[in-house]
Simulated scan of single mutants.
Amino acid sequence: MKKIFYLFLALFFSFPVFAQSDKKTSGNPVFKGWYADPEGIIFDKTYWIYPTYSAPYEKQVHFDVFSSKDLVNWKKHDKILDSSSVKWAKRAMWAPSIIEKDKKYYFFFGANDIQSDQEKGGIGVAVADKPEGPFRDYLGKPLIDKFHNGAQPIDQFVFKDKDGQYYLFYGGWRHCNVAKLKPDFTGFIPFEDGTIFREVTPEGYVEGPFMFIRNGKYYFMWSEGGWTGPNYSVAYAISDSPFGPFERVGKILQQDPNVARGAGHHSVIQIPGKDEYYIVYHRRPLTETDGNHRETCVDVMTFDSKGLINPVKITFDGVKPVTIK
């Protein structure tokens, strides 16, 4: 009988189901695989990260998503959208942004990396009934398929303002535009002066716009430098309006030669009801030279007494568990 008892104890304490609960921090990267341009967001008390599948352009024909209840343990949801569902998208499906409206999930993405108005591609929209999809092409064509104010139609970010109006910030090639979305996301509403695309490019802007509101102020953020280089980084500005003016304050995320290079193209998650923020971004391990070898990381983002963003310390540890109540 004693032998059976001791055998039971040995099996109980070695059983792997208990391993996950012992994880103290997320670690960076927060999940395996080469993923970049991550958008972090909360839906129904669950964290979601929607990244670019980081590979050669011809292989970037699908999106995966990752979910977590605590920022530490992540579950992968495979191929929530791919080019078989978007007939006009052939390659370079990039930098998703997602928003929930009226119990539908609208997924904005770039495709084809167009270099002129004569090429087919740009920014598209897909829709699903659940955050993990499956998503289907919403319009059957790109939402934006031309260059306006010099902005390449990539790197879109959907922003909901305090008054309920939705805007689309986007742009590569060192130009950023904002446009006012129709309520059904099928197109745009002209501004008072009749224009549709208003340029809001701050000094140093390259790509990857993101915006959030804190204490009534609009924090506009973007990526600088070259995406394959070690100088890739994130800077920001603060304004009283979503249209600026956006005067550059400075960099808050960049490489640490002891940790990783090329830290950039980020998003920000705020814990509901708390002044607690996390930055979700990609970076390149020190051991990697391939431009596509980028991984998704999460670190703490804080503010000083004046409301300025403190420089982010990029870590190998990542973040501690945080559940949403």
Rank of each mutant, 00 (worst) to 15 (best):
G229M: 12
G250M: 00
S267D: 08
M221E: 09
A260N: 03
G226L: 13
Y232S: 03
P272V: 15
P245W: 05
V249R: 09
E224T: 15
G250V: 00
K251G: 13
G244Q: 12
R248D: 13
I252P: 01
P285T: 01
P230F: 06
I269E: 03
S241Q: 01
L253N: 00
G229W: 11
K274A: 05
R248P: 13
H282L: 06
T228E: 12
A260S: 08
Y219H: 02
Q254T: 12
Y232P: 14
N231Q: 14
W222Y: 15
I213W: 05
Y232N: 05
R248G: 14
D256S: 12
G226T: 12
P272Q: 04
W227H: 02
W222S: 02
Y236S: 00
G262M: 02
P230S: 15
S223I: 04
W222I: 09
R283W: 02
G225Q: 00
L286C: 02
S241H: 11
S267N: 09
G229P: 10
R214H: 04
F212G: 10
G229N: 15
Q255V: 14
G226C: 11
T228V: 15
V249S: 01
N258M: 13
K217Q: 07
L286A: 04
E276L: 02
G229V: 15
F220Y: 08
V280R: 06
S267G: 15
I238R: 01
P257D: 12
E224H: 14
A263W: 06
G273I: 04
A237F: 11
E224Q: 14
E247Q: 12
E247P: 07
P242G: 06
S241N: 15
G273R: 00
E276T: 06
L286S: 00
D275S: 06
G225S: 05
F243C: 09
D256R: 02
I252M: 00
G264N: 00
S267R: 13
G226E: 10
M211H: 08
Y218M: 05
D240P: 09
I271T: 07
D256K: 05
Y219N: 02
G244R: 08
V280D: 00
W227A: 01
P242T: 11
G244T: 15
V280M: 07
R261I: 15
V268H: 10
V249T: 11
V259I: 12
K217I: 10
Y218S: 01
Y232D: 05
G216E: 00
Q270R: 09
V268L: 07
H282V: 10
G244H: 12
F243Y: 14
G264C: 00
S239G: 07
T228N: 05
G262P: 10
E247V: 15
V280E: 02
Y278V: 08
P257M: 09
